[in-house]
């Protein structure tokens, strides 16, 4: 058990192991996103009430899922980094933060654009929308904190703490539509209950969700590998590797 953790925590081991995995992740993500997009935009039926604006669901829901999952992943990485001092956890957290912020923005933007034809407003201060906006500020805070310290270790610790504290917001986002009256409707896509739409609408959504997660894994792998090289630049194995690449 300890051996595995140490291996996983070793940047060198991770760097070489992920090399083979990475192109597969990119390939699978690209294929799923491509097929899911064409399916969702062309072949999936329009909704009987919303018409074609329903197709926004195929980017809105996966982006909102990622926005929350990335933050949880960041908080877990922060915990691992703080408790076990495993540096690679912090490298991964650094690598994934911009993606999470981007996905939060995408979820907010696509939701606002969707709200205009469906609700009759692009924004309302209900619990779901507000807690999602707070998530965006938390992401910006984590990214800014990390960059604000001259010592990398201090920045990493501060960012980890904020991620761990800020993760409180995630259940609030998730359950806001059940706990309070909101303009936002409850979830249509869950893993635990029967989907609230027929298969020909649901399957492309599933593909997009899995594709977004694949994209998350692929991007995080690539960026973590860059981060490893950056931070381990002075080690013998990175120098040897650089000569090899030449």
């Amino acid at each position: 058990m300890w051996g595995l953790i140490h291996k996983l925590g070793s940047p060198k081991w991770f760097y070489y192991r992920s090399a083979a995995l990475q192109p597969w992740c990119w390939g699978v993500a690209a294929a799923l996103l491509l097929v899911g997009s064409v399916w969702g935009l062309v072949f999936a039926p329009a909704d009987y009430q919303q018409g074609n604006s329903f197709r926004i669901i195929y980017v809105h829901v996966p982006a909102a899922f990622l926005a929350q999952s990335v933050f949880v992943a960041m908080a877990v990485s922060g915990l691992v980094f703080m408790v076990w001092k495993i540096k690679i956890a912090d490298m991964a957290a650094t690598a994934m933060a911009p993606l999470g912020a981007a996905m939060t923005f995408v979820a907010l933007f696509s939701g606002a654009v969707w709200g205009v034809p469906t609700w009759g407003t692009w924004w309302i201060w209900d619990a779901r929308l507000t807690s999602m906006l707070i998530l965006l500020f938390l992401y910006i805070g984590v990214i800014a904190l990390r960059g604000a310290f001259s010592r990398r270790d201090s920045g990493a610790r501060a960012a980890s703490v904020l991620a761990m504290v800020g993760v409180i917001n995630i259940p609030i986002i998730k359950y806001s539509v059940d706990w309070w009256y909101t303009l936002h409707q409850p979830a249509s896509f869950t893993l635990t209950s029967r989907p609230a739409m027929p298969v020909e609408m649901w399957l492309p959504l599933l593909m997009m969700v899995v594709g977004f997660y694949g994209f998350f894994i692929a991007l995080t792998l690539t960026r973590t590998r860059s981060e490893i090289l950056r931070r381990e630049a002075n080690t013998r194995w990175v120098r040897a590797l650089l000569e090899e690449v030449n």
């Binding site: 996103l33 997009s37 935009l41 329009a46 018409g51 074609n52 604006s53 197709r55 926004i56 195929y58 980017v59 809105h60 982006a63 911009p98 993606l99 981007a102 996905m103 923005f105 995408v106 933007f109 696509s110 654009v113 969707w114 205009v116 034809p117 994209f215 991007l219 690539t222 960026r223 590998r225 860059s226």
Partner: peptide
């Protein structure tokens, strides 16, 4: 998109822009 083109395409467009941007950034960074 039956009068909803502006909404659908702007939402999809922003999403595609961000995902492509992040991908290219990761490559350039490396």
């Amino acid at each position: 998109m039956g009068e909803h083109g502006v909404y659908v395409w702007s939402a999809w467009g922003i999403t595609a822009l961000f995902m492509l941007g992040l991908t290219l950034h990761a490559r350039l960074e490396r």
